[in-house]
Design a protein around this nucleic acid. Sequence first.
DNA 1: TGTACATCAGTGAACGCGCGTTCACTGATGTAC
DNA 2: TGTACATCAGTGAACGCGCGTTCACTGATGTAC
Lengths: 212, 212
Amino acid sequence: MKRNSYHHGDLANALTGAAIDLARRGGPEAVVLREAARKVGVSATAAYRHFAGYGDLIHAVKEAAQAKLADSMATELAATDPLPDPAADAERRLGALGRAYVHFALAEPGLFRTAFCRSDKSHEEASAAMLESPAFRMLTETLDDLVAAGRLSLARRPFGETTAWATMHGLAMLLLDGPLAAVPEPERLGLVDGVVDTVINGLCGPADRPGR
Amino acid sequence: MKRNSYHHGDLANALTGAAIDLARRGGPEAVVLREAARKVGVSATAAYRHFAGYGDLIHAVKEAAQAKLADSMATELAATDPLPDPAADAERRLGALGRAYVHFALAEPGLFRTAFCRSDKSHEEASAAMLESPAFRMLTETLDDLVAAGRLSLARRPFGETTAWATMHGLAMLLLDGPLAAVPEPERLGLVDGVVDTVINGLCGPADRPGR
DNA sequence: TGTACATCAGTGAACGCGCGTTCACTGATGTAC
DNA sequence: TGTACATCAGTGAACGCGCGTTCACTGATGTAC
């Protein structure tokens, strides 16, 4: 990667882009300031004109990865057709969001890991950022719609986001790095569908099951 | 830490123990061969008499962490009283296992992270080891009992382990490193209970919900 | 019961690695007059 | 329009760090005769 003028002109973005590419290929551990500079064709020192240091760079990459996850979910959600019945449609959206979450993790494992990597930023900031993301808002709206449609009981509503998110997040992790990594490709999607079905059933099923 | 004879006598175990302690305190990244040797009071080189190298050591620590998780789950499960009704008791055990999983993650975050850290071992080996663990067997048996008691439909049975595990795993991860890290202590346990309830409802609820 | 000797379990110095970061610098840009 | 000069965005060498690992070694142990 070369440049023709002494000044780069857009080095901050170029470095972030290179770092995102490193994350895509190798996850957060692969994000190396010197390597990003090398890819852009610039000395490592130059990065310090645009970032306070390594922590600043990885944070930018992490945010970008989170944004890509959210975009991917929005796209996949928009690719499915709405259903006429509002309740059924809310369920459909919930399922689509969950599937999209895991699909992104499988398609972009490096970015997915980076989006959730530990970082020095305070937990408060990190969680605030995440809970304000478009992806989380889509989930919240869908759950609200389920309540409005009478599918999700108020008793269970408060745990809706957490349960849905945790389930798909855990599934993604187990498939990527954990004991489910050995599950062969064709089975994986069926597994995702089965898990999504069970989650929806858990949220939308009756509040009081017989014999309880 | 000192020793009086030139030969240690049980260096392999001592090193593993020191390494486990490092993992407990700082997660997998804190497992450093040289540091473990230092804690035992031995030269770093000595480790190579008992381990092929770093990969061997971290693998031993990872297995120990998994075993501790399984032990902790078994203990917490045994601490709750059985119910007379077999179906209700199976549900109770499922909930207890799920809660215990997250409780361990919160009580021993370093070990929990180490139990699921990425390692060089092939995925096949890692998953095989995990799927044969006592913890997994407890889960499988409980789900089988739910089927026997008529609570879990055969259609959903194949996804039982994955759904239950993924949900609690995801919840643990989100609470430890993720966006739920900011949830204050008192709320956390309520959140865990709510998620557990939803999972059980998802598995044990009716196969066909009204209006579907 | 001693003694030679192989074997085993430790030592300590050193290597190479790649990282993030600092330093004093230089080339390019743009602004004041 | 030209020129001095401040400012900005790069450079390249160097530092310190701690790691895993290798090497040639030495002290302790146990076994054969």
